[in-house]
């Protein structure tokens, strides 16, 4: 099995340890990664989507065309990339005129969007393509007695209508919970499971307001679950939940620290990866926990 790895800006430049986690996990599960050389930004919301929709779809379609040329599907560990590329693909498949305009732009650089590839979220790919059984059979270290709070990531859930893969009930997401459970952890629901982490446009526009959301989320997790670990499916949620804690502690808003990992980082360690390599850039300390997991 082979799949294209759409890396995404935040992972490549802010959390390359997550990139390394993907590069460890997929081959370990028998999936070869194609680098999709020359890929760019998805592009994200504050850029072309806010200026010119055809330009947005054209930059996205160029990325999809790279995967098409290589005859592979694409995976991403970033829910924003997933959302942007899924919207692009949906528009091009349902709107002939837009597709023609986009293909005229792509023609000028010798490319074409045909609609033969698709973007897949790593969480859904792991769940549907690899499957909980195989994951369970492949891990070297289990997470028995570990309790986890999950954060799915907005765009892996919504808008469900246009997404190639989704939850059976988007308002009660279960897939990420189940994937944590096959590793041996408990991953119960909590009241603010659907709340936004506050990253994205909000964080760059008004950090203080963005931190209102992340604080509420963290405090709810702490109060209701008191988890050992937060596990997310989205690189943006990872950055926000991880980096906000030190700030909130310094401001006296929270007096606890909960380590945060992307699911693929956690899976990588369960499969035998060196924690430092796949989670070494976390700001909220996590290595002590991962080393304990490795020691069994």
């Amino acid at each position: 099995m082979k799949v294209g790895f759409f890396i995404g800006c935040n992972i490549a430049f802010n959390r390359p340890d997550l990139e390394q986690a993907v590069r460890y996990t997929f081959p370990a599960l028998g999936v070869e990664l194609d680098d999709l050389e020359g890929q760019s930004c998805c592009p994200t919301w504050g850029t072309m989507p806010s200026i010119d929709p055809v330009g947005w779809y054209a930059v996205g379609a160029r990325n999809l065309a790279i995967a098409e040329e290589k005859r592979v599907e694409m995976i991403t560990a970033c829910s924003t990339c997933y959302g942007s590329l899924a919207k692009t693909a949906h528009k091009l498949q349902t709107h002939r005129e837009t597709r023609n305009r986009v293909n005229r732009l792509l023609k000028s650089i010798g490319k074409e969007y045909r609609g033969t590839s698709r973007i897949r979220h790593v969480v859904y790919y792991l769940y549907h393509e690899i499957g909980p059984e195989k994951i369970k059979a492949s891990i070297k270290h289990g997470l028995e007695r570990l309790s986890v709070a999950i954060q799915p990531g907005c765009l892996s859930l919504w808008p469900s209508e246009i997404q190639p893969e989704k939850e059976a009930d988007v308002f009660h997401p279960k897939i990420l919970r189940e994937l944590c459970e096959v590793l041996g952890a408990s991953a119960p629901p909590y009241s603010r499971i659907l709340d936004c982490c506050g990253m994205g446009g909000m964080r760059s526009t008004d950090m203080e307001k963005s931190f209102i959301l992340v604080e509420r989320k963290l405090v709810t997790m702490k109060k209701e679950l008191n988890p050992d670990l937060i596990v997310t499916g989205c690189s943006s949620c990872l950055i926000q939940l991880d980096t906000a804690q030190e700030f909130l502690q310094n401001k006296g808003k929270i007096n606890f620290a909960i380590p945060v990992l992307h699911y693929v980082q956690l899976l990588a360690v369960c499969l035998g990866a060196e924690p430092q390599q796949v989670a070494g850039l976390a700001r909220t300390p996590v290595l002590h926990l991962l080393n304990k997991i490795r020691e069994g």
Binding site: W45, G46, P49, T80, G83, C154, L155, L157, W158, P159, S160, E161, V170, C196, G198, M199, G200, G201, M202, T205, D206, K209, S210
Partner: peptide
């Protein structure tokens, strides 16, 4: 400034 803080989360569209 509000529109620029939109998270593009698509909860509303859902």
């Amino acid at each position: 400034i509000s529109i620029w803080a939109c998270q593009s989360c698509n909860r509303c569209t859902e």
